[in-house]
Simulated assay, not measured.
Amino acid sequence: MTRLTTALTALVLAIAILPAPAASAAVDSLTCTGTSHLAYSPGLTFTPQTVTLTETDTYTSCVSSDPTLTSGHISGSFTVAGLSCAYLTAGPDRYRVNWNNGQTSTIAFTETEATVVAGVQQYVGIGTVTSGEFNGGTAVFTWAYLPPSPLNCLAPGGLTSQNGTVIANITGL
């Protein structure tokens, strides 16, 4: 019995002097899915031109470390020179997202890439949240649209809009 008591005492002492596991830091995070609508004025043709692009993104399904944040949206217009059905480019380098909880996040994209993957026009923006909710976090937004139909680009007025999907991811410290 003394050996058992000695062994149990040694085990209790060993557990008591072991360092406690480090507390994990809270991680701010957000993942949203939704829809994206692009409107072009004038409509896109195969001739490069300066176009006003109006973007409306609606994030309807958000999972966030902030339980009050469940949805959001982006809406804005910007001018793009040299845009055509043959040359589509990524959007602006700064976005302001308005969240359902009254907060905003301003995102500065430092890297954007426009590609066609498996017949889908895809834009990826990577950057940092520069102000508002998730300030300092890393943002990766991915937009996907069907490539424009050549018939729409050749029609009078050109291609005036595109609809697609968007996935927004923000992670922080």
Rank of each mutant, 00 (worst) to 15 (best):
M1N: 12
T104L: 04
V97F: 08
S61Q: 05
E111R: 15
A118E: 11
T138L: 15
A39M: 08
L154I: 09
L8S: 08
Y145D: 07
G91D: 02
T160C: 02
L13I: 08
P19K: 06
M1F: 07
Q162V: 04
Q121N: 10
S131V: 06
T171Q: 04
T5I: 12
S61E: 03
M1C: 13
M1S: 15
G91Y: 01
H37T: 12
S29Q: 07
V27F: 09
T89F: 11
A20C: 12
S71F: 02
Q122G: 01
V166W: 01
V63I: 13
A90E: 09
E111T: 13
V27A: 11
T58W: 03
G102P: 10
Q49L: 13
T106Y: 01
S65P: 10
G127K: 00
N98K: 10
P147E: 06
E111M: 14
T104A: 05
Q49I: 15
G125Q: 05
A144E: 06
L146N: 12
T47M: 11
Y87D: 15
L4D: 13
Y123C: 00
A26I: 11
G158D: 03
V80S: 11
G72Q: 03
V117K: 10
L69G: 04
T142L: 04
P21W: 04
T110I: 14
E113Q: 11
G157W: 09
L69H: 02
A23M: 05
Y87G: 08
D93T: 15
A14C: 07
T52L: 06
A25T: 14
T112V: 11
A16V: 02
P48W: 07
A90K: 08
S24I: 13
V63C: 12
T33R: 15
T54E: 01
A168S: 09
M1W: 13
S64F: 04
A114F: 12
D57G: 01
L44G: 02
I15D: 07
L8H: 09
G43F: 03
I126D: 06
H73P: 00
A118S: 12
R96K: 15
T110S: 14
T58A: 14
C85A: 04
A168H: 03
S24F: 14
T60R: 10
V12W: 06
T115W: 03
G157K: 13
S131L: 08
D57M: 05
I17K: 08
G119C: 08
G127L: 00
T5W: 14
N101K: 05
L4N: 14
Y59P: 00
V166Y: 03
S149F: 07
L44I: 09
V140H: 01
V51F: 03
Q49D: 12
Y40G: 00
